[in-house]
Amino acid sequence: MSGAAELPLFVAIPVAILLVLGAGLSLAGSIGLLRLKSFYERVHAPTIGTSYGLGSVLLASMIFFSVLQTRLVVHEVLIGILVVVTTPVTLMLVTRAALHRDRLEGNPEVPPPLSRPPEQD
């Protein structure tokens, strides 16, 4: 903990709260991944960790390093942008792949293709 002793209390407390909140949200998402029953329900769980879970931890680190003035706060912003943009894309790709596989197997739980008959390829 380099330099943390000089940190004023009114900065340390929000940082601590944000850290625990972010980790807690991430843990809730992880429990959801374990507990929820079907694949399409489980897709919802990780987004807790990647939205506000990640956001809280990044914000905590930004406040911490800005107050200590040890370095520029660039990495957190970049990581935040990267994860916010990429997570929906990967989740959508996996969901579509899952839908495609379920339809090929004729799983009755998934809805049929919209309007058109399925393509033959």
Partner: peptide, 28 residues
């Protein structure tokens, strides 16, 4: 819109039909 819907934990964008403009969403 797809990013907004998927980033929101309660909803997930599943499929979009370009011809009819119909969207398939999964809601928790």
């Amino acid at each position: 819109l797809a990013c907004i819907m998927t980033a929101t934990p309660g909803t997930a964008w599943v499929e979009f039909d370009v011809e009819d403009g119909e969207l398939l969403l999964h809601v928790l």
